[in-house]
């Protein structure tokens, strides 16, 4: 069975990520143990909370993560995706993991748009990435965020429009990231997790 390690770097709801991965057919372990991480087929970097806090909590596992992603896939979710990028502008300028080129920016206030971007919005698939195997273009997924990834088209595998078009899913080599929460996106979300498990297998 494919084992996916969910990095436990602090607070937030990681139970749903675990249950989602299990439902999608993986053995999921919540861990901060380097050996257990390295013994897994894939890694999920979950994310709820603030960027700088998340990076701080992740500090001890950074080396392991860099080693892991050389050979095997990593999926960042929400803040976890944002941490894959180089720089975040959330409450000051913070350095991210730099696994995906780009910058995390805050949504600009615009008449008629609430921040956070909260709720179900659709994905415009910009290529044919294996993460979206069997997922229809314009599928609805669940978002909740006030910051977004600003990255080049070559690293963007799905785009969503809210205030401005932004990268709602990214990929660079073995690093994947989704701004939305697949574990909160019903059957479509479970299918995306299933695809990630297949990539890891």
């Amino acid at each position: 069975m494919t084992q996916v390690a969910i990095l436990d770097y602090g607070l937030g709801n990681i139970r749903s990520v675990k249950k989602g991965l299990e439902k999608a057919g993986a053995k999921a372990v919540i861990t901060s143990d380097c050996e257990e991480i390295m013994a897994s087929d894939g890694v999920v970097l979950p994310g709820v909370g603030a960027f700088s806090e998340g990076m701080e909590q992740l500090d001890d596992m950074k080396g392991t993560l860099f080693e892991f992603v050389e050979k095997r896939p990593v999926l960042g979710i929400c803040l976890g995706m944002q941490m894959l990028l180089e720089i975040s502008e959330e409450y000051g300028i913070h350095e991210g993991l730099g696994l995906v080129p780009g910058r995390v920016r805050g949504f600009e206030k615009k008449e008629g748009f609430k921040i956070p971007h909260m709720g179900w919005n659709n994905l415009t698939l910009t290529g044919s990435d294996p993460l979206f195997e069997g997922i229809k273009d314009q599928t609805y997924v669940y978002f909740v965020h006030s910051y977004y990834a600003d990255t080049a088209p070559e690293y963007t595998i799905a785009e969503t429009d809210y205030i401005c078009p932004f990268s709602s899913a990214v990929r660079n080599k073995n690093a994947w990231g989704t701004q939305f929460h697949p574990e909160k996106s019903g059957d479509a979300g479970l299918k995306i997790l299933e695809n990630f498990i297949a990539i890891a297998d």
């Binding site: 607070l11 937030g12 709820v48 909370g49 603030a50 803040l79 956070p116 909260m118 909740v144 965020h145 006030s146």
Partner: peptide, 8 residues
């Protein structure tokens, strides 16, 4: 909000 993020 500081601990879990505004969205929480």
């Amino acid at each position: 909000a500081e601990m879990f993020g505004n969205q929480c």
